[in-house]
Design a protein around this nucleic acid. Structure first.
Length: 1021
RNA sequence: GGGCGGUUAGCGCAGCGGUAGCGCAUCUCGCUUACACCGAGGGGGCCGGGGGUUCGAAUCCCUCACCGCCCACCA
């Protein structure tokens, strides 16, 4: 297997470009990367289940020679689901842990940001579940008003040539529901392919009946409290979506534009000699709605004009010249400004201040209205050109300058927005914001990384009222009823029977729906049953954490916090973890419109869910952005380039179909394989008598008893002394596994070998790192230390040292290997759930599932610094000897004599480790000179001198070259140390221990230099 | 215009006051009773530029440059 699949061409520009259009019609949302559908299909998670047979293969029998994620993942997920491991119940005997996931849009499909988000969720949740908490991760989706309506509208237009108006409101909404039922779970299925252990039995949708009740309740409450009001003002309007949108749904786009200078004739100007005033504008078409010209009150150029009038060109309207210090910057343009209160936010405010009329010249369809006189009916962009032409013809166009404008665009459809005067529902923010600011200030809610706290507070403190009405059909319809007789406004769940004011009996409901974010702001409690006082709400609220993206701190996080404070009188969660933005290989943000996104599902199909998760999480710490790389291979020279390169370094252009890889995931995949193989080794050596035992099905939902039973082993304290048994058997309070060194039955030296003490000390260390990393949301730290431990310590050293003992029939080593592997699998499980479970199920002693087995815990007393120090010295000695062998080109298989001098006494007993790992026979000598150092290679490890007789091993030329190199590097380092040590400042100001360490180091180097020099000298003779 | 990140070996990253580490890639050797998706060893870096603080700076401060993200009503 080459490990690569070809990528199918998608889109026209670049092979990995996806169309910017939303998925439409009967086609499910398309993947960004599109491999053959047979490969991409997330798994057999949905639809036909032929898992029963596969489960056996995945969960029992010998571990396959090759690690193949596909063979275990679907089967395990199926089994976990069947057994209800993801489901959480209220359990008063245990502490709760609850996260409600950020609900993705129903129209969505997984991209890397989601991959990061939900993987972090699952890691934390699996960790907490293993720790024995009643753990609920509640999933769901958001109805995403505008986005979903757009998708269905487009589908209707393309497939049936119908607009929503052709269908009518009720029928259209019905069609959206149908679409939702059919495609709305795509993203949910994709989460499952990542292995997410969310409680699917509690999955929610923001338009579920119960959830909708919560939305009504919230609205009516806020209305009755006077927070919600109707306002007639300028708001952002999307002419394509035909709805108002809130400020934070606006994106900016820099566009090349112009600044037009127009002359406005001054009324009776000839009488005092100033006939025109020149104004500058970027939007000429709005001049038709001008109702004033403004200047700065202190601008000396215009003092005489303030209070006079101009005659608005084209329209012939007489409008005043006003002075407004807020609106006008005298430095810009001509210092004179046209004022269009109906089409500009600042002008609207100025209009309010100066009591100006508001004339709407652009309609909701972005066409000019009747008020636009000769231009009525024209598109706004056509009208712009027409106005400029007319002004030019009338001799009123002074000049045109190039000017970069920042156009507001709709973050959903990218249409240029129009500030439009309209009547909308608003939510007053000042009172609601206050407590939400307070709880963050007081650290009741803690942001991680904490820099985001400032971002949140800055925004909350200058919050404007929230426009909550949308002119859409898909969403929660605003529960406002107008009396048809007297117009009285009532907020109610259902139409009132009778008008409280006039006794009228006929009502009309407000046609608008609520902003999507209104409903999602209730998410942490509405999903748990609010406004009902359910046991779940009582038990799980406040939830434990929120994990989300920085881009929705305003849109969502802030609103959840103030809604939580308003309705629950309590924070929604104490922790807000903001994860990094995912960038592509070029450091640009991954986004749909750029087409540079990577679909994690594709990575799962290529590398497996465990590798994908691990690769993602290795980067998930406190970084603000992380990069995800994709490479493709040149078919000519086989070299790899970034995925969007046009040409290979060899000059060849890339074909449309290429081999690709994700190096970070590939690396993670190697790690998976390493674990698999190491596990195979351990299991092969556990022996028949310890073969897998049948599990007890009744334990299914209960937490596993801690693995190590009392009496199986006794804890080993620092320094290797045996201490009182504090095995988990005596600790039923904590259901987590207490890490401890297992115990050899007798005290025979070899069984309590140095390497055993060392590895358990290291295991304690890594256990602590993983727990601390998880607790601090430093998932990258946790995975790094795990990787280091498993690969470099357990595999490279302990297993290698174990081989000798295994062949010698030492029973202790088998037990140690078993316990260490067991602990590793537990530590690994949150990150690599499938692999760890599949292996764990084959351990001699295992429960129903690793998911509910205890998570290792440790305290620092379990580290054994003495053994760590000794092992470090021994390992360094091995490396140094290997190093010499390699440089001397000694045949790898050849066992050679090695002479050591100056070996600390407490190390001399452990030389078998060195002999074993460096293929040598160690002999001690008190002084290297005493031996025949003339024909020897010499080196050192710390203060230990190493001498290898060269007799019959090497030619002396090589050794002399090697010595010269070593001497040079020794001299260089000594020189550096001398520089410091001869510096009085250093000697007097640096801490004593630093100085003495340098001195010690110097002396050691000096000694090595002397030996090397002598050896060189002798070898030359 | 403001704010926040980043800039360390070819690539992706760690280190955040005592003269540089990891993985991949590369080179040499090796199928040694888990793993060639491997093992052993090696080469490769004036830690973005410039100032400063300090006995000592990749690490702290200032400044500039470049990359990215967020916020802001300059017509």
């Amino acid at each position: 297997m080459c490990g690569c699949v070809s990528v199918w061409v998608c889109g026209t520009v670049r092979w990995w470009t996806v169309s910017t259009r939303e998925p439409v019609g009967t086609t499910p949302p398309s993947s960004v990367l599109r491999p053959p559908s047979s490969v991409l299909r997330p798994s057999s998670l949905k639809g036909e289940h032929k898992m029963t047979a596969n489960q056996d293969i995945a969960l029992s029998g010998e571990l396959a020679r090759q690690y193949e994620p596909g063979a275990i993942e679907a089967a395990l997920y199926e089994r976990w689901m069947e057994r209800g491991y993801f489901h959480a119940e209220v359990d008063r005997d245990r502490a709760p842990y609850c996260i409600t996931i950020p609900p993705p849009n129903v129209t969505g499909e997984l991209h890397m940001g989601h991959g990061l988000c939900y993987t972090i969720h699952d890691v934390l949740v699996r960790w907490k579940r293993m720790q024995g908490l009643a753990t609920l991760c509640l999933p769901g989706t958001d109805h995403a008003g505008i986005a979903t309506q757009n998708v269905v509208e487009r589908m209707l237009a393309e497939k049936e040539g119908l607009s929503r108006h052709d269908l009518g409101r009720e029928a259209f909404v019905q069609r959206v529901w149908e679409w939702k039922e059919k495609y709305g779970s795509t993203i949910i299925e994709q989460m499952k392919s990542l292995g997410c252990s969310f409680d699917w039995e509690r999955e929610r949708f923001t338009m579920d009946a119960a959830y909708s009740e919560a939305v009504l309740e919230a609205f009516i409450h806020l209305f009755n409290e006077g927070y919600i009001y109707r306002g007639y003002r300028v708001s952002h309007w999307c002419p394509r979506c035909r709805t108002a949108i809130s400020d934070i749904e606006v994106d900016d786009e820099e566009q090349a534009g112009s600044l037009w200078y127009f002359k406005y004739p001054i009324e009776d100007g000839y009488m005092f000699g100033t006939e025109h005033i020149v104004i500058a504008t970027t939007r000429p078409e709005t001049m038709l709605g001008d109702t004033a010209v403004a200047v700065h009150p202190e601008d000396p150029r215009y003092q005489s004009l303030i209070g006079r009038h101009v005659v608005l060109p084209i329209m012939g309207r007489r409008i005043p010249i006003i002075a407004d210090p807020i609106l006008v910057d005298p430095e810009f343009g001509t210092g004179a400004l046209k004022v269009t209160p109906a089409h500009d936010f600042n002008d609207f405010d100025a209009g309010e201040r100066n009591d100006l009329p508001k004339i709407t010249v652009i309609g909701p369809d972005a066409r000019m209205t009747e008020e636009a006189g000769p231009f009525a009916g024209m598109d706004r962009m056509d009208a712009r050109a027409a106005v400029v032409e007319r002004m030019n013809n009338d001799g009123l166009l002074v000049k045109i300058e190039d000017h970069t404008i920042v156009a507001p665009i709709c973050d959903r459809c990218k249409t240029v927005l129009e500030p439009l005067l309209s009547e909308q529902w608003y939510c007053r923010m000042s009172e609601l914001a206050a407590p939400a600011i307070g709880v963050v200030r007081e650290k009741q809610i803690q942001f991680t990384p904490d820099r985001w706290e400032k971002v949140y507070l800055d925004w909350m403190e200058r919050l404007r009222d929230w426009c909550i009405s949308r002119q859409l059909w898909w969403g929660h319809r605003i529960p406002i009823y107008y009396c048809d007789s007297c117009g009285k406004v009532t907020a109610a769940r259902r139409p009132p029977e009778r008008c409280a004011a006039c006794e009228g009996i006929s009502f009309t409901q407000d046609p608008d729906v609520l902003d999507t974010w209104f409903s999602s702001s209730l998410w942490p409690f509405a999903t748990l049953g609010w406004p009902q006082r359910t046991p779940e709400l009582d038990y799980f609220y406040p939830t434990s954490a929120l994990i989300t993206a920085s881009e929705i701190i305003y849109l969502w996080v802030a609103r959840m916090i103030f809604m939580g404070m308003e309705f629950m009188k309590d924070i929604p969660y104490p922790d807000v973890y903001i994860y990094a933005t995912v960038l592509d290989a070029n450091g640009e943000r991954m986004s749909k419109s750029k087409g540079n996104g990577i679909n994690p599902v594709l990575l799962v199909s290529q590398y497996g869910a465990d590798a994908t998760r691990y690769a993602i999480v290795t980067q998930a710490g406190k970084a603000q952005q992380i990069r995800f790389v994709l490479e493709k291979q040149c078919p000519e020279c086989k070299d790899w380039s970034l995925i969007d390169a046009e040409r290979c370094r060899c000059g060849q252009p890339f074909p449309e179909e290429v081999e690709w890889r994700a190096p970070q995931v590939a690396q993670a995949r190697l790690f998976c394989n390493k674990i698999w193989q190491a596990s195979r080794f351990v299991m092969m050596n556990l022996g028949e008598d310890e073969g897998p035992r049948t599990e007890d099905e009744s334990q299914t939902l209960r937490l596993q008893a801690p693995l190590l039973e009392a009496g199986r082993g006794r804890a080993r304290g620092p320094g290797g002394a045996e201490t009182e048994d504090e095995g988990p058997g005596t600790e039923d309070e904590s259901q987590t596994l207490r890490l401890q060194a297992p115990l050899p039955a007798s005290g025979r030296g070899r069984e309590r070998g140095l390497e055993d003490r060392w590895i358990f000390s290291r295991l304690a260390n890594v256990t602590q790192s993983v727990n601390e990393g998880l607790a601090a949301y430093d998932l990258d730290v946790a995975t790094r230390s795990l990787h280091e431990f498993v690969w470099s310590e357990f595999c490279d050293w302990y297993i290698e040292l174990a081989k000798r003992r295994l062949s010698g029939g030492d029973p202790t080593i088998r037990e140690n290997l078993r316990v260490i592997l067991d602990t590793i699998l537990r530590l690994l499980h949150p990150f690599m759930p499938f692999l760890s479970e599949a292996i764990w199920q084959r351990l001699p002693e295992h429960g129903a599932t690793l998911m509910l087995a205890g998570f290792p815990e440790v305290n620092l007393e379990q580290t054994d610094l003495d053994s760590e120090q000794k092992m470090e010295q021994l390992m360094d000695l091995v490396v140094k000897i290997r190093n010499m062998r390699s440089e001397l080109k000694v045949a790898p298989g050849l066992r050679i004599p090695v002479f050591l001098s100056n070996v600390a006494e407490n190390l001399t007993g452990w030389m078998e480790i060195v002999e074993n790992r460096a293929r040598c026979n160690i002999e001690f000598e008190t002084n290297p000179q005493e031996g025949d150092s003339r024909g020897s290679a010499v080196s050192a490890s710390g203060s230990i001198a190493i001498r290898i007789p060269l007799e019959g091993l090497v030619d002396f030329e090589k050794e002399r070259a090697r010595l010269s190199g070593e001497i040079a590097s020794l001299e260089k380092e000594i020189e550096g140390l001398d520089r410091q040590l001869s510096n009085d400042q250093f000697l007097t100001r640096a801490p004593e221990n630093v100085v003495s360490e340098k001195r010690r180091r110097r002396a050691e180097l000096e000694e090595r230099l002397r030996m090397a020099a002598e050896a060189l000298q002798r070898s030359g003779t």
